[in-house]
């Protein structure tokens, strides 16, 4: 029952910009563990996708280039290192090439852009090359997810998308880049389903 409410809410906003608080959150415990695990599997497919994981890298602070157009994954060209600042302040600022713009439509191979300042995700949010179990443990750990419970994770996605940030860009990346799987609305809904199921994690 609750799941259908969530889906209806998500469908009602599909096609328009995702509004903050647009999703009616399910009651905690109303989603089965199996449905929560299935939702996490879809979340995992999104966060390890190149549109998301390429800038969720570890403490070497080097963004990655990976995805269908690259063949093998490789470090970002041009010797790029975003530094501990994660915005390139120590070397070349990300914004030297990555423009802040609400217009995601860039040419293939041009520097992609979105509506907030381009930067790496905080180092605690490392996803690139990480396993299901590792990413699941990170996503539900407030020490490593920006201090968020599951409802705040949903709010975070909606808020970033409302700013035309990377969460919105991941599904409309411009150029000939492959978008993240499924839709932004389904991803937000999956975060809610996983949360309401108690954020179950796979054994591995």
């Amino acid at each position: 029952m609750q799941k259908s409410v969530v889906i209806l809410a998500a469908v009602s906003i599909a096609g328009a910009a995702l509004a903050e608080g647009a999703l009616t959150l399910p009651e905690e415990g109303s989603i089965s563990r199996a449905d929560g695990q299935a939702a996490f599997e879809r979340i995992y497919e999104v966060v390890i996708h190149p549109r998301c994981a390429n800038c969720h890298v570890g403490e070497d602070n080097i963004p990655m280039w990976s995805g269908p157009s690259y063949g093998e994954a490789r470090p970002h060209g041009m010797h790029i290192n975003a530094g501990e600042s994660r915005i390139g302040a120590e070397f070349l600022p990300c914004q030297t090439c990555h423009v802040t713009s609400d217009d995601f439509d860039t040419a293939p191979h041009a520097a992609p852009r979105f509506g907030i300042a381009w930067q790496l995700a905080p180092v605690e949010f490392e996803w690139f090359g990480k396993s299901r179990a590792e990413i699941c443990a990170q996503l539900k750990d407030p020490e490593r997810n920006g201090g968020r419970d599951w409802r705040e994770l949903v709010e975070h996605l909606e808020h970033d998308a409302s700013l035309n940030g990377p969460v919105a860009w991941g599904w409309s990346p411009g150029g000939d880049r492959e978008p993240a799987p499924r839709t932004l609305e389904e991803h937000v809904e999956d975060m809610a389903l996983w949360g309401a199921a108690g954020q179950p994690c796979p054994a591995e």
Binding site: Q95, T96, V99, T100, S101, D103, T106
Partner: peptide
């Protein structure tokens, strides 16, 4: 490359409407 408020920027792909 030019500077925008002192920061190096690649002017070939900065839409002028997004210039700040």
């Amino acid at each position: 490359t030019v500077h925008v408020d002192g920061m190096a920027v690649r002017s070939c792909q900065l839409p002028v409407g997004d210039l700040e």
